[in-house]
Structure formats: structure tokens, C-alpha cells
Design a protein around this nucleic acid. Sequence first.
DNA 1: TTAGAAAATAATAAAAATTCTTATTTTTAT
DNA 2: ATAAAAATAAGAATTTTTATTATTTTCTAA
Lengths: 130, 130
Amino acid sequence: MAVHKHSKKRDAILECVRSTASHPTAEWVYAQLKPQIPDLSLGTVYRNLAMFKQEGLIGSMGVVDGMERFERNTEPHTHFICHQCSAVIDVMDVDPPTHLGSQVGCGSVQDCILTFTGLCNQCVSNSAKA
Amino acid sequence: MAVHKHSKKRDAILECVRSTASHPTAEWVYAQLKPQIPDLSLGTVYRNLAMFKQEGLIGSMGVVDGMERFERNTEPHTHFICHQCSAVIDVMDVDPPTHLGSQVGCGSVQDCILTFTGLCNQCVSNSAKA
DNA sequence: TTAGAAAATAATAAAAATTCTTATTTTTAT
DNA sequence: ATAAAAATAAGAATTTTTATTATTTTCTAA
């Protein structure tokens, strides 16, 4: 029933994504694990993240600043993107208006994606100081 | 008052984006114009699209399948993305729920982006035939 | 209208993110 | 333990986009 084999590296990559609320890039995951697993290869991170995503073990909220952002939360939910520091934050209190899908005039709608952008709290603070 | 100079190529690039309801990539614009302007360079298309976008003469709805999608409509509006053929279609009848921005708990919200995904009519037809 | 400064362009190199290739190593079922 | 199957490292290759530089075009104003 196992859909794939396990390896120390593979497990570490999955655990890395699952243990952060941030929305990491492949490069970030690689940088996190490299100290503990010195012979880890970036290609392995890319390959496994793609596999986990396809199997639904992790999610991806899309590309921000040219880099794909993975996430542990695989349920549809709203995001906030800071266009200063590119932080991606889950907005659990505001649900995407899925019901509006019936009003979309084209094609057959499957998903509804809601995203807010602006300055995150940290960048707001930094702006005030500057 | 002119914010930039004009050239035949520059004007053609802007007109190309303004005359289509599709959400073209730089490559697409280049392919459209190349037959009429054989010495057009792809770098020129990229450079001018970036400039038009910065000046607010055109918009960009983001990156789909690794390619930035420009658009003539610079007003905030909803999009539909076909995840089969990557077509991007404006959804003018459903407005992004901007008012929900006040319920977002993090940072200072500036924009609200609403996107639907699914199969466009053409891909639905093609699926039925197959 | 024409000279000359400023900006735009073509061609090409370079950068950045991601994917592919291949030889080797690890995992897992037997 | 063994052998087949899958995973990995290293590095090459691809893809999209940006930067560099020599040349050409645009625009200003004399």
C-alpha cells in the first residue's frame, strides 16, 4: 500500500514542510536541512516536494517572486502576501467565497482562490522606523 | 510631459497588449509582432512590458505556468484560469470581496485578489469528445 | 533642418529557478 | 543476504527573464 519508498532525506524534507507555518521555497527547505544532512542535494528537494505535492501530502499556494511556495495546509484557505518581504501568511478567519463560483460565466469552476496583499506587521513596523 | 520616448516598436508592443482580451506572455507578444517587425528583439518586448506595467499603462495578473501574464485591463478584477490550457479569462461579473480586507488579521491590506480555476469551455468540450 | 544629447534597440551574455541525466547508492521484498 | 526497484548526488540542461554593450533612433533646440 506504500505509494513510495522512504528514506532519511525524503522523510526529513516532508517533516521540514510540515513543521513550519511559513510557506517555504525549495531553496529554503534545502538550506534548513543541509547542515544536518551535508550530502543532501537540491535536486532531491525539488523532486520530493513535487512528489509530495502530487500525492497531496503538502500543498502549494503558487509562485511568489518567481519561487514556488509550498505549505503544510492542504485545505483551501486564504492567503496574505506581503509585497515588501514576500512573506506568505495563512488567513484562517476569512474563507474564499466559493459560492460565487456559480456566477462565473466561463467554463466549469473547480476552485476559488482568495488572496490579500499589502504590508505585513513587521514591514509596517520597519516602515514606521525608517 | 512625455514620460518616455516613442518608437515604432514600443508603440506596437503596447498596442498589441491593448488589442487583445487574452492575457499574453512576453513570448506571445513577440511572436505576434515578429512577422511585421522582423528585427524586433525579445529583450525589447520584456523591457517595454516591464516599463508599461510600472507606468500603469498595462496590468499583470501574475505568473501562470512560470510565465508572467500581462493584460490591458488595469482595474482590479476577477480572473478564471483554466488549469488544462492555462487560458486566463476576465470575470467581470464577480467582484473581489474587498470589504473582507478589514477581517484580515495581519498587516495592512492593500489589495484583494479573487481567482477561480477549473476547465474553460473549450477544454470542457475537448474532454467530452475524447 | 540639423546637430547632439538622451534614450531605445539588437545581439548576446548572464542570471535564476527548476528539471533532466546518469552513474551510484539505498531501500525493500524475498 | 540478495537482487530488483527506486532514490540520490552531481552536474548538465532548460526555461524564463534580466543585464551588458555597441549601435541606432528619437527628440530637443539652436
